[in-house]
Structure formats: structure tokens, C-alpha cells
């Protein structure tokens, strides 16, 4: 489905789930759109969607629609991707250390109690999945990662916290993510990445790219303190 969210932009929604295969198809659509449309200024892949922003002097809505329809058909026709990210930019798996100490994770004990699990089991389940970057945004360097094990999936808090610390690891439904900077946030906080991982702005902003893979390594409180 193709819609026009502004006078010089198009939003394509692919009929796919935002999983590894679905994200690979959205990224394939992104490459085809960049090749087949003149004057593309920016593209944003997010979940099962792609935004294309064009140049106003080169934008013909009819042509854009037919080119994107053809690109979407082609992206949907391609054979399912083998496991593993489809682009070189996302080839490396990002590995982040997480301390799951309840002192640093204000929602961990409540989440564990609701799930009927020990806090250590929540940490084990959260850190035993290789996550896929489904989208970036909300803040620079924030990635929506999926999917969280269904046993620890929890809706976001009814009211967001005014201040979530930098490096806080949160869960919202089947998504998890790391807050790259202090700010408001409503995800359930279950761990913390040492702040040293966010000090360099260029590194922090460019860390995650849609389609990339992310792993969390549990670390002890003493190692967390040493790395902060």
C-alpha cells in the first residue's frame, strides 16, 4: 500500500510482519526505490514501512506511485532471506553489556513477579536472544529491537517516567531498547548498560541500523561500576 504523507513524500507499507524476513524486504525495497526514483533525498525504513522523501522539482506522484508499486512487488517476490542481515552496514552484531541488578532496574522485580519468574530468569531470557533492529528513531541512537521472549513481554507503563537515565534497558510489549540519553520514557526498565557506551556522540548515533543484530551480555554489578 502506498500513501502520501506530505506533498513530496511517499510511505510504502509492505504486507509483511516486522521480523527478519520482513525487514530484509523493506531494506530491499529501499534499495530499489533509491535506484528507480530520481531525486530521492532521504529514506527511512521502520518496521514494515518505508518513507521516501523526494525533490519537489523531480516528484511526479503518478510516476512515484507506479515505480514504488513495481519496487514493492519485486521486494515481495524475492525468495525469503537466509538468516543474517542483508546489508554490509548491518553485518556486525552489536554486543552490549547489561547489568540486571534490581538497584539499577526499577521495574525488574515487579516484571518478574508478574511473569512468575525469578529476576535472574528474566535477565537470562532477555540476554539469550539475538535481537533484530526493527527501526531507529524516537531519539538519535534509539533502536526498537525485537522480539522479546513472550514470557517477559510487558506493556509499557501507563504514565511515562519524566526522567529515564542514559543506558537504561527497557521492555515494551515484544520490543526492547536502550535509552541513549536521559529523557522521558515509558518502557519497563529491567537493566542498565554502562554510560561509557554513550559518551561519544558519533558512535552513539550510528550504533544501530535497521536490519542489524544486537546481543546483550549480562555483567555483574562490579563490572558495571568499573565500566561506568
Amino acid at each position: 500500500m502506498i500513501t502520501f504523507p506530505g506533498p513530496v513524500s511517499a510511505l510504502v507499507t509492505l504486507p509483511v510482519a516486522p521480523d527478519r524476513d520482513g525487514i530484509a524486504r523493506v531494506l530491499s525495497l529501499e534499495r530499489l526505490a533509491q535506484e528507480s526514483l530520481p531525486g530521492v533525498r532521504a529514506t527511512i525504513p521502520a518496521f514494515n514501512r518505508l518513507l521516501v522523501e523526494g525533490s519537489p522539482s523531480e516528484w511526479d506522484p503518478g510516476e512515484v506511485e507506479s515505480a514504488l508499486e513495481a519496487a514493492a512487488r519485486s521486494a515481495l517476490r524475492a525468495s525469503p532471506t537466509s538468516p543474517g542481515p542483508p546489508t554490509t552496514a548491518s553485518a556486525a552484531t552489536v554486543s552490549l553489556p547489561v547489568c540486571y541488578d534490581p538497584d539499577l532496574a526499577p521495574d525488574l522485580e515487579e516484571l518478574a513477579a508478574t511473569a512468575g519468574l525469578a529476576t535472574g530468569e528474566v535477565a537470562r531470557l532477555h540476554s539469550s536472544t539475538t535481537y533484530l533492529v526493527l527501526a531507529t528513531g524516537f531519539a538519535p541512537g534509539f533502536a526498537y529491537l525485537g522480539d522479546v521472549d513472550a514470557r517477559i513481554a510487558t506493556p509499557r507503563r501507563p504514565a511515562p517516567r519524566a526522567r529515564v537515565p542514559r543506558g537504561a534497558v527497557g521492555i515494551a510489549d515484544r520490543r526492547t531498547g536502550v535509552y541513549p540519553a536521559e529523557g522521558p520514557g515509558g518502557w519497563r526498565l529491567i537493566g542498565r548498560v554502562p554510560t561509557a557506551f554513550f559518551e561519544d556522540a558519533a558512535e552513539r548515533i550510528a550504533r544501530f541500523t535497521p536490519g542489524g543484530s544486537v546481543e546483550f551480555r549480562p555483567i555483574a554489578r562490579s563490572d558495571y561500576e568499573a565500566e561506568c
Binding site: 527511512i44 514494515n48 518513507l51 526493527l134
Partner: peptide, 27 residues
Amino acid sequence: DSTPLVDGTVQVTGDSRPLVFMRDRPT
């Protein structure tokens, strides 16, 4: 799931009022 925004997207936020996204908007 959130969807991409453009300059001038008009969104109705949690307080049920519209806003027009400007230059320092999220993506």
C-alpha cells in the same frame, strides 16, 4: 508500531489535541 514522519506532519497526541511537527521533530 511508530511510523515515519515528515516536516509538517499533523499528529494528535495523548492530550487529544493536534500538533504540527517542526524542524526539531522526531523521525
